[in-house]
Amino acid sequence: MHTKGVRPPPGHPRRYIVIGVLGMLAMLAALSSLLLGPVALSPERILEALVGHGDAIASTIVLELRLPRTLLGLIVGAMLGLSGAVLQGFLRNPLAEPAVLGTSNAASLGAVTALYFGLAEWHPAILPALAVVSALGSLGLLFLLAGNSESPLTLILAGIAVATLAGAGISLSLNLSPNPFAAMEIMNWLLGSLENRSFVHVWIALPCVVVGMVLLLWDARALDALTLGEDGARALGVSLGITRLRLLLGTAIGVGGAVAVSGAIGFVGLIVPHIIRPLTDRSPSAILVPSAIAGAALLTSADIAVRLIGTTAELKLGVVTAFLGIPVFLVHLLRERRLW
């Protein structure tokens, strides 16, 4: 809601500077992601491949391996960052993230089901499709459990129930898996990764994420109004029922689509809004777009780290974000406590 005429309070940079710097960081991360990999390619060869004039090897590596992987890092990261920011505002809880409502677990369960029954081998689209369907199904269950209650606590409790149920389903599939290789495949997927993803995955995730983002960004002011509590927001003309439906649908579709191609990647949705908040005026609407861009930059950077850290088996992305997340989260937690 910042505009000309109203000067921003001191203590945080102007909004367009924050968005500009974060945007540059995300672009830098994306470029590095195209440049870095086990095969060394010169920037010229990469550029030629990108515009369609490259040699066969460079074209294959850049267009079929690195470009989809980079795009997915940006898309998935942006969705996780945005949904974390939206849910923290909506539930008025600094610990909220998509996992709190069971969305991530439910999407994982859908994917695990595809792996368990061998459906994933039929077509690369089956696994992500099942993940999205499962995320939407969990939303139905969430509404059934939470009823008409507008209290964020009811929604969080219902979300924990959904997440636990989906988690139990995942454990069951590991428990009953016919052989260690099947269990290994499921575990590997659960750790989260952008390895060996193709444009099929981009085309599955992109529409889901676009729809999810539009729904989440539709009425950011409703989140600001909720600063005054439910009654305060409704007295300001916010229809809480519609807002809740829009935000939860956006989360289920967007995060469902993101988790469907990347596997469960935790912590991005939780920590990004905390990093962004001190750079803004701290109102829930002001952190949305910066959180999306920062999420894209963070996940793409983490994916570069995965490739650079030399281990015998490639590190999984979800593992890196978790290790990355804890210290960042602790630092910001300590800083926030002094402020709150």
């Binding site: 109203v6 008025r92 109004a225 509590g229 009654d231 007295a235 701290r282 829930p284």
Partner: peptide, 27 residues
């Protein structure tokens, strides 16, 4: 048509005063 000042003073985010007063323009 009707402005409402609810009971209690719970604020869920540490927004600035100007920003908070600005919420009154949402309708």
């Amino acid at each position: 048509a009707m402005a409402y000042l609810p009971q209690g003073q719970t604020l869920h985010w540490p927004v600035s005063v100007e920003r908070l007063v600005g919420l009154g323009r949402l309708p």
